[in-house]
């Protein structure tokens, strides 16, 4: 199939736009509908790789330690990310439990792991199998990772409980807050176009 390197089709309105020669930190928008066509990032692979490694470490901490503690006259309970999933399952809301499990644990974890695999192989210049497939899956899964929504849910739950009981934060919550910042930064430093080009070259 013929290649059209100088052209790019807008994802929102299908208009063909002429791409400018590559320059770092360059944002181009569609000339008809104004949607983002492409934004290149400085030092994308190194920065994103560093963030992804840090993100995976904090993910582990956020999963293993309690997020919140609740105290009412002597009685005390704590929760972790996974206990919400397990309890929904036990209360009989299996579909809800699956949704929460996928959106807050599985998808965010797999997304980080996928980026680690791809970026590490690019950084070390080794050709490992399935990279193009994995990066495609990364784009498919992208919308289903909802750590930021979960963060807001934690805040809302805390405020809601303040009237009933004493709520205090756990180590897991601090790790979780760092994880949010890291995963948002990682998606901000990821240069999709660059990764696709590199993966295609080294195939």
């Amino acid at each position: 199939m013929m290649q059209h390197q100088h052209l790019i089709a807008c994802r929102e309105c299908d208009l063909l736009n002429v791409t400018k020669p590559y320059s770092p930190e360059d944002i181009s928008r569609c000339s008809r509908c104004g949607s983002l066509l492409h934004s290149s990032k400085i030092n994308s692979i190194d920065r994103t790789l560093a963030l992804v490694i840090a993100g995976l470490m904090f993910f582990l901490i956020a999963c293993c330690y309690p997020l919140l503690n609740l105290k009412v006259v002597g009685a005390e309970t704590t929760n972790k990310m996974i206990t919400g999933v397990i309890d929904l399952y036990h209360y009989g809301l299996k579909d809800c439990s699956l949704m929460v499990f996928m959106m807050t644990i599985i998808v965010p974890f797999i997304k980080l792991a996928m980026l680690l695999y791809i970026l590490l192989s690019l950084k070390l210049n080794i050709n490992v199998p399935g990279r193009l497939f994995i990066f495609r899956m990364y784009h498919t899964l992208d919308v289903w990772g909802m750590l930021d929504v979960y963060m807001l849910a934690i805040i809302v739950a805390m405020v809601k409980l303040v009237d009933f009981a004493t709520v205090s934060t756990g180590i897991g919550l601090y790790a979780f807050i760092v994880l949010i910042v890291i995963s948002l930064s990682a998606s901000a430093t990821l240069d999709h176009h660059l990764i696709w080009e590199k993966l295609e070259e080294s195939r």
Binding site: A75, S97, V149
Partner: peptide
């Protein structure tokens, strides 16, 4: 919109004090 669902999962896991709450 998933906010409410996540909040319920957090509350269900955390608030298990039997008779009290």
């Amino acid at each position: 919109s998933m906010l409410d669902i996540f909040m319920i999962s957090i509350l269900a896991a955390l608030v298990k004090l039997g008779f009290l709450l």
